[in-house]
Nucleic acid binder design. Structure first.
Lengths: 227, 227
DNA sequence: AATAAGTATTAGGCAACCCTAACTATAAAA
DNA sequence: TTTTATAGTTAGGGTTGCCTAATACTTATT
């Protein structure tokens, strides 16, 4: 439970690095992510870099060191394991898990996290479809891609979402799209990029491009053009 | 997760009040309990009393207000529910539960604590035999008494321990005394107050007065003199 | 009553985190 | 190129939570 702030900074930096690939991570980006002001970030960066968790300069931005990355991955690991546990063992739904996990991720008791990981059967993905790194910090491989990059005829399985907001997750539940559901792509409207899906019950579901950009899928059609 | 320090102060004060009944709670006692120095306590007391969680003056010592007591009981409730959960659902033993619970007790997600309490079947006692207050803050009744106040012939069931230290709990396990075990009292040595117990397998276990002072029991012999 | 011992308090400091205000680069736009 | 934003930085502040040193009380003990 010590160093909750360190945890949060390192996690935020890690996330930023991975979301905006190739772009560099700046103090202002971190400030926005953590809902604080840039000077606070600057100050903390000094402390974190003094402890060799990262380096920072204007040219290359903030770069996590090996140790810094390990800590961040560990926080993410704990977060996702808890989310999975809350979902599978305590009946929390898609949109409820995040908040509780946000606190639980800071509990550093190793035996505890090992135990619930084991009880869950060493899962590779959390209830949002996000990969759970193993104890060595290695993420599982998967051929996930954005729904919006799929083609007519793709046989899809929903493997994850990019946005975790309550409203988004609730919307998905409402239109009957849930993790591990299977769909085929019926039609893609050129005009606005919206997609018509067909589910197992032969019902049709219409999805806007905006939504399709936030859903991760795996295409199970052999040799599909989409890959 | 906010106000972890407030939680810890209020919990410490509550515990002190209840352990040293009738005695008044002083700043130095709190400092010792929390492993900090008296001036830190004095300072915090100002803040807590400004927020009406307690009152303090030299004559009556530190006295929790209704709200203060509620918060303390809630922390204790969360702690004991987690301990029970770790023990029953995650296979932690007697001496392992405390440390993890010390962090988990600060996670304030109500749905989470309600859920695990429910999954456990609304238990009334934790793995150390300590009572778990219900959601309204009411502790369950029980006729527990110290083993050291028992008499020859008592038919006892172990319902709790007063000390939670690792070494103590490990010792009890080693000499084969565990929660809910049943014993009868075979002999009491006047000279040093040590007690000879007989277990269900007719094995004898010798216990010093010091140990007997830290074990809570319930006597199941009808109309026993010990009450 | 005088000394010793321990408790309560005040004063003054330090570190962690966060903030606003103000200044400096830097990059985009006019 | 000059203006205008925007991002980065520094300076200076506030709060919380903890500390040491010094002082003021109390309470035993001699």
């Amino acid at each position: 439970m010590n160093n909750i702030t360190d945890d949060n900074y390192l996690k935020a930096i890690y996330h930023l690095k991975n979301s905006e690939k190739n772009k560099l991570v700046t103090p202002t980006m971190v400030a926005n992510e953590l809902l604080i002001k840039p000077p606070s970030v600057l100050e903390k960066l000094k402390s974190l870099s003094a402890r060799k968790y990262l380096t920072y300069n204007k040219e290359s931005g903030i770069i996590l060191s090996k140790t810094g990355k390990e800590i961040a991955i560990n926080v993410i690991r704990r977060h996702r394991i808890w989310e999975t546990y809350l979902h599978k063992h305590l009946g929390f739904n898609w949109s409820e898990v995040h908040e509780a996990a946000e606190d639980l991720e800071h509990v550093r008791n190793e035996k505890l996290i090992d135990k619930i990981y084991e009880v869950l059967g060493n899962p590779e993905f959390d209830p949002h479809g996000d990969p759970i790194p193993n104890k060595q910090g290695v993420f599982p491989k998967s051929e996930r891609k954005l729904l919006s990059t799929s083609l007519v005829g793709c046989k899809l399985i929903i493997v994850g979402v990019i946005e975790h907001s309550d409203s988004f997750l609730k919307y998905l539940s409402e239109i009957n799209i849930n993790l591990n559901d299977k769909f085929s792509i019926q039609k893609i409207i050129e005009y606005d990029g919206s997609i018509q899906l067909k589910n197992k019950k032969n019902e049709f579901i219409q999805i806007s491009k905006l939504i399709a950009d936030k859903i991760m899928v795996r295409c199970e059609k052999v040799n599909c053009e989409c890959k």
